[in-house]
């Protein structure tokens, strides 16, 4: 049976999805990247393989996320796509007719506006990462709460406190202040969710027309407190898709399926890549005063790709596999 693999190599999590020809999810893996993207890809491939029935052949691979090039080189991708397009495609695929996508991931957040199944506008957070997954993680840890319970706790609050959400650092000091005044944990948790939603709507979604249906995806969408805060602020229903945490990977798989239906052969190197030795070498180029940091990826002793140079002196020696 033909199937398509989507990989989203993000800063915080690395996700794998395998889609069948008719769009059924055959495997779904969510891993923490933990600062080691190569290991995450290898581990993910191994786990994906073990979850798949033996009669599956991978006929196409798509990669996305901030590490999309690395993942693409490692596995031999048929398409390498940015995460904005991948998330937009996945949302339109999951809920045809969706008009707004709110996406909050580990270190970035974005809004995607669609009309008639087409992306017409988008924005991504620029200078501030307040409200992203990493920040919530940290605050939950500081309150001594497992992040999974954070949303539930917020839902129990009757009197949310107002927390300054303009800046992540100040939000934290404001939270500490509110704790010291004696406010309850749930009121602070809900107040924080509201502050982060305000920050998102003012910074990322600034000036965008938010119309229903609204999808909320990305790792943070698992937080019911955040979903509720969005619903309150937008005064409309917000949907969290079942695959919310792996929507980027889903989009990459959908793109791979589109890309390889006509062309017969996939570039996929096979699951054996999980046993390969990958080596990353960094070196500074002294060809000019820019002193670019060039990265070289080797797999099984062979140079697979180089990047990081501004002029193409190193990267163009090896043809890169891109979309």
């Amino acid at each position: 049976m033909r199937a398509y693999l989507g990989i989203d190599l993000g800063s915080v999590s690395t996700n794998f999805i395998v889609l069948s020809q008719n769009g059924e999810v055959l495997a779904n893996i969510y891993l923490r990247t933990q600062g080691n993207p190569i290991q995450a890809v290898k581990k993910g491939l191994l786990r994906t393989k073990s979850e798949l029935p033996s009669n599956i052949t991978i006929s196409g691979v798509g990669t996305t996320g901030s590490g999309r090039q690395l993942a693409g080189i490692m596995v031999g991708a048929d398409i390498v796509k940015n995460e904005i397009t991948a998330h937009g495609i996945a949302a339109a695929n999951e809920v045809p007719g969706v008009r707004t996508v709110l996406e909050i991931g580990g270190q970035d957040s974005k809004i995607i506006i669609l009309r008639d199944g087409m992306v017409i506008d988008f924005a991504m957070n620029t200078v501030c990462a307040a409200g992203t997954g990493s920040f919530l993680d940290r605050q939950a840890e500081r309150l001594g709460l497992p992040i999974e319970q954070f949303g539930q706790l917020a839902m129990r609050s009757q009197n949310p406190v107002r927390i300054a959400g303009r800046c992540a650092v100040f939000a934290e000091s404001d939270m500490i202040h509110k704790q010291q005044l004696g406010h309850s944990m749930e009121d602070i948790a809900r107040g924080l969710c509201q502050a982060l939603v305000r920050n998102y709507l003012n910074n990322v979604a600034k000036g965008k027309d938010i119309f229903p249906p609204v999808l909320f995806q990305g790792g943070v969408a698992a937080n019911v407190g955040m979903k509720q805060a969005f619903e309150e602020a937008l005064q409309m229903e917000v949907w969290v898709p079942t695959q919310h945490a792996v929507m980027g990977a889903l989009g990459a798989a959908v793109l791979a399926r589109r890309k390889t239906t006509d062309s017969a052969k996939s570039n996929f190197r096979g699951f054996k890549v999980s046993d390969w030795n990958f080596d990353v070498k960094g070196k500074q180029c002294h060809g000019c005063s820019n002193c670019c940091e060039v990265v070289e990826i080797q797999g099984e002793g062979q140079t697979l790709a180089r990047w990081g140079d501004r002029c193409g002196r190193w990267s163009e020696q090896i043809p890169m596999q891109t979309a």
């Binding site: 796509k81 940015n82 904005i84 397009t85 087409m118 992306v119 017409i120 988008f122």
Partner: peptide
């Protein structure tokens, strides 16, 4: 960040051309 935004923007334009 710059490349991601530019790529997504061009995808958006090309998507329009197709449909």
């Amino acid at each position: 960040g710059l490349i991601t935004r530019v790529e997504a923007f061009l995808d958006m334009i090309e998507w329009r051309h197709v449909s």
